[in-house]
Design a protein around this nucleic acid. Structure first.
Lengths: 270, 270
DNA sequence: CCCTGACCGAGTACGGCGTACGCGGTTTGA
DNA sequence: TCAAACCGCGTACGCCGTACTCGGTCAGGG
C-alpha cells in the first residue's frame, strides 16, 4: 500500500516475461511533446495522445503510471542534452549556457512553467546539470559559488522567458482575435489612464519603446553577468584575485554583509 | 457574437435594475484565495467556492463570466497594494521593492505561476506598477532604464521564488510522506551517482551546503543589484555621471552593442 | 398604481478530464 | 506444459468548467 511505485526512472522499459510492448515511454513522450508544442500543454491529454498513437487511452498507463510521470518524461525528453566544453572565460560560457536554455524554453513553450513547479531529476536534466557544474568550476569557481551563480541565472532565465512567452501568446491570438483583444482592452486602459492617477504609466506608454525580446534578453543578461563578473571574474586587468561571493561588491561597505557561509560544514563528515 | 464580454474590470458591480446581488466579486475572490492558499489552486474549483459561500455553483457565473476571470480577480486581490515612497537610494528602494514582492509570492504560493503565464492589468497591479515607476524614476533613472530594471528584477524574483516554493512544496509532503518520498528517490539518485558519470554533481551533494532560502534570495539580489548599480548608481564616489543602459559595461567593448533604442517613436502620433 | 423588463439564484445536463478495475489474449521461465 | 507475468483496452466513476433554462424579485416608466 505504501510501497506504491519506485519512481519512473527506475522502472525497466522492457518487461521480463510478457509480450513485447507496442510502444515506449520515449515515443509517447515525443507525441505528447508534439501536441503540447503546437496546441498547448492542456491539449496533451491522455486520450488525445492515445488517439494519435492509434491505441486506447488506458494503454498508456502501462507505460506511465500517472499524468505526472508523463510530464516528468516530457520534461526530460524536451530538455535533451547538448554538450558544452568550458573555455575558461566565465562570461562567454555563461552566455552560451543562457542562450541554450532560452532556446529550449522557446522551442517548447510549456516547458518553463512545468519545469519551474516541480523537482526535476531526469537523466537528461542531470547530465545537463553535471555539464553546467563542469563549465562553471572550469572557470575557477568554487562549488558554493558555482551553485549560487547557476541558481541565479536559471531563476532569471525562467522568469524572463516565461514573460516573453506570455507576451508572445497574448500577441498571437491568431490575427483577427488579436484585433478583438485590443478592442476589448483599449477602452479599459484608456479609462484607467484618463483618471490621472497613473502619470508615470501614461508616460511609459507614450514614450517608452519596449523593444524586441531578443534585445531585452541580451540586455538583462549583460546586467546580470556584470553583477556576477564583479565578484567572480577570472581574468581581470586590475589583479588576479577573485572575490568570494560573500565579499563586498560595488556599494558602500556598511550596507553589505556576508551572505554565503563557506567551509561551514559541521565537524563530522556525515 | 463577436462582442462577447467587455473585460471583467469594465463590468459594473451593481446592477441597474434587478434585485441587489447577494455576493460580490471581491468576496468570491477572497474565498477562492483562502482555499488556494491552504489547499492549492486546483482546489479552488467553482463548486468548492460555491459550497463555502453556501450557494449554488452556477450563481458564481453571475459575478465572474469565466474561470479565467476569477483568476484575474484573485491575482489582483492577492497582489493588493502597498505604498512606497522613494528615498532616492536606488539600491535601498530596489531592495524594498524586491522584498515586498517576494513576501506576497510566499504568502500566496499559487500567485507567481498564475501571474507569470498571463497578462495582468488589474487596478491593484496597475497601481503597483505606477508606484514602482515612480520609485525608479525618483532615483534618477530614465523611463527606458526604469522599465528595463523593473523587468529584470521582476523576472528574477518570479523565477527565484517559484524555485523556492517548489522546494518548499516538495519538502512539505506532510512529514510522513516526506520520508516515503526520500525512500523512493534515494535509490535512483544513488544509482545515478554510482555510475561515475556525475563527478561534479557528487561533489556538490557531498560538499555544498544549500543554505536557507532567505540567504539565497539575499545573495542573488545582491549580485543583481551590483549589476544594476554598476550602470545606474546615482550616488557614486568616482563621479556623478550615470551610464545609460545601452552603454558599455564591464566587458571588452568589442562584444557590446547598443541595446535599447531611445526616442524611436514613429513620426505620426497615431 | 401596476406592469414590464432586467436581473438574481440555482438546478440540470453535457462534454472532457485523469484513472481504478477487470477481462481476454500473449509470451516465457521453470 | 502450464502458470505467472505482462499487454491492450473497454467500461465506469468522480471530478471539472460551464451552457441552458426557469421561476422569483426588484425598479422605472406608463
Amino acid at each position: 500500500m505504501s510501497d506504491s511505485k519506485p519512481i519512473i526512472w527506475m522502472r525497466p522499459e522492457k518487461p521480463a516475461r510478457g509480450p513485447a510492448p507496442t510502444h515506449s515511454r520515449g515515443q509517447i513522450a515525443a507525441v505528447a511533446i508534439d501536441i503540447a508544442d503546437s496546441e498547448g500543454i492542456a491539449a496533451a491529454s491522455v486520450r488525445a495522445i492515445a488517439k494519435r498513437l492509434g491505441t486506447g487511452a488506458m494503454t498508456l498507463y502501462r507505460y506511465l503510471p500517472t499524468k505526472e510521470d508523463l510530464y516528468t518524461v516530457m520534461i526530460d525528453e524536451a530538455t535533451g542534452f547538448e554538450p558544452q566544453e568550458p573555455t575558461g572565460d566565465l562570461r562567454a560560457d555563461l552566455t552560451t549556457l543562457a542562450h541554450r536554455r532560452r532556446r529550449i524554453f522557446l522551442r517548447h513553450p510549456w516547458l518553463a512553467p512545468l519545469l519551474a513547479t516541480r523537482p526535476i531529476m531526469g537523466p537528461n536534466f542531470m547530465r545537463g546539470m553535471e555539464r553546467d557544474l563542469a563549465v562553471l568550476t572550469g572557470c575557477g569557481l568554487g562549488m558554493d559559488d558555482t551553485v549560487a551563480v547557476l541558481n541565479l541565472l536559471h531563476s532569471w532565465i525562467s522568469g524572463a522567458v516565461q514573460a516573453e512567452l506570455t507576451e508572445r501568446a497574448t500577441a498571437d491570438q491568431s490575427g483577427v482575435d488579436r484585433h478583438a483583444w485590443r478592442l476589448r482592452m483599449e477602452p479599459y486602459l484608456t479609462s484607467l489612464l484618463a483618471t490621472g492617477e497613473f502619470p508615470h504609466l501614461s508616460r511609459m506608454v507614450q514614450t517608452s519603446e519596449i523593444g524586441e525580446a531578443d534585445e531585452r534578453f541580451e540586455n538583462g543578461l549583460a546586467i546580470i553577468l556584470d553583477g556576477i563578473e564583479a565578484r567572480f571574474s577570472t581574468v581581470t586587468e586590475k589583479n588576479g584575485s577573485r572575490r568570494p561571493i560573500s565579499g563586498t561588491g560595488g556599494g558602500p561597505p556598511s550596507t553589505r554583509r556576508a551572505i554565503v557561509q563557506r567551509g561551514a560544514r559541521s565537524s563530522t563528515t556525515e
